[in-house]
Write a protein that binds this DNA or RNA. Structure first.
Lengths: 125, 125
DNA sequence: TCCTCATCTGCGTGGATCTTCAGATAACGT
DNA sequence: ACGTTATCTGAAGATCCACGCAGATGAGGA
């Protein structure tokens, strides 16, 4: 990792210095930031995004339905779902030979909603 | 891109088929999904995450302050900020030779908050 | 004008990640 | 028990992106 000079730079004894120290203390450490970033990164993929919004719409879908809905090979969908499930973004339920997936909790739904609002696409439904 | 058999798979004429067709119609298309995923991916990086949470705490910081707060070389911070600004995640304001950055809007703040809640770290402050 | 400081930009490399193929596993109907 | 269908898994190849260095730009102060 690169070098960061401890007390160099523009914070040279002015009031900013103390304030920055406070901020620095409150910045998430590496492991927490890793967790947070990991969640966002999980959502940061076109394929996964499509699948998640499909689940947001449908509530619950099995692998082959997802495959048909987002036009992606089933094996790929399966791989993707494993990732999402491992991180607690989705839950699954087995019914016979099918496995149904759904969004795990309200937080995930909220993230998807807020993001769509930000992007400007008012989902009326 | 892989092959997806149009009417193959488990949706073979059952009621699911119609429902899946509806879902499929409501799934974001490639460009919209790209935009949505792009926003999430932007947040999906440890360094950027730290910077954004620092801004969430501080409200406004210049490049060198951010550099000190998250312990990252200024050049890297600058590059990162350019990315974030290009996507409308942060705004900036010039004051003399310094450039101050802040989170662009409430949506971004909400995303950060919701994500932190989901992760389970109740930020009391 | 010259010099310093804060910030920005271009480029090359390394590492992580996505994608897909091919085969394995599990569940059901007959 | 057998074959079929749905899902899962492992590995390899290709792609993408973050990172840091080195130099350029812009703004102030003397």
């Amino acid at each position: 990792m690169g070098r960061v000079l401890p007390l160099d730079g523009c914070v040279g004894g002015d009031p900013q210095s103390q304030r920055v120290a406070l901020v620095r203390a409150s910045v998430p450490d590496d492991v927490e930031a890793g967790t947070l970033a990991g969640l966002f990164r999980l959502l940061g993929d076109v394929r996964r995004t499509k699948i998640l919004y499909a689940l947001l719409e449908a509530g619950e879908l099995c692998v082959c339905d997802i495959s048909a809905a987002v036009q992606v090979p089933e094996a790929s969908v399966s791989q993707t779902m494993r990732l999402l499930r491992a991180s607690g973004v989705v839950d699954n339920r087995r019914e016979g030979r099918r496995v149904y997936y759904r969004l795990a909790d309200a937080h995930v739904r909220m993230l998807l909603d807020v993001c769509r609002e930000h992007t400007g696409h008012e989902g009326s439904r």
